[in-house]
Design a protein around this nucleic acid. Structure first.
Lengths: 107, 107
DNA sequence: CTTATATTTCGATACGTATCGAAATAGTGC
DNA sequence: GCACTATTTCGATACGTATCGAAATATAAG
């Protein structure tokens, strides 16, 4: 996980519609949701949804699996886990940041 | 923390330049860095930096404090903490998501 | 009040993104 | 192959963002 990739993932979550898509998928749980199901719940044009889904898939935050003609979408937790890990580690969220400043990945 | 606010914060971190700014501030530790110091380290136009800083301050991820003519910038950890909390909670990063689906903050 | 320094605002340009409807594609089943 | 459904791609528009240099502002010092 480098800065560029983290920024891409953060940007893909940083759009209200996409964050809503992602959250809806999380709440759908392991079963996931077909694209059409997402479209009904969120109420946007299918083309717009497809556009956003592509970006979430590209950044690895969402996976898709075919079942006949429908595409099942699922939140991909390991990616979110890694992203949160990056934020907590590189950009340490906890106030115990004084011990950081290691010259490992500096600039 | 609602979806809109989380999206704004994620978007503000989802730009490589801003993420680099934020990370530089984190690594600067408690002392923080003046705007000019950031500009030297990152190597962008002062006006561009000011533009990005404004967005990070607006979303609460960075704070600023005057010291004479210089503005000291610091990473504001509580905001990042809340954001990570939102991601881990609402968009649960851990695979133990089956127990979620509480109708508390649903859409 | 003038000078000097640090930062922001302004104006402009280039580029990317969000959105939609319509058309095209993909996969299934007859 | 044909019809049917699900999804994506296409084309177009509107809007926001990133970037810069130059000018304006703010704070301090003399």
């Amino acid at each position: 996980m480098n800065l560029e990739q983290a920024a891409r993932q953060l940007e893909s979550l940083g759009n209200p519609t996409r964050l809503q898509i992602y959250r809806t998928l999380v709440r759908a749980g392991h079963a996931g949701l077909p694209v059409g199901g997402l479209q009904e719940r969120i109420g946007i044009a299918a083309s717009t949804l497809s556009h956003h889904l592509k970006r979430l898939v590209e950044t690895g935050l969402v996976t898709q699996e075919r079942q006949a003609t429908t595409l099942i979408c699922r939140a991909h937790y390991p990616a979110m886990d890694a992203l949160i890990g990056y934020l907590a580690d590189e950009c340490c969220a906890d106030a115990a940041c004084a011990a950081l400043a290691e010259p490992s990945a500096a600039s």
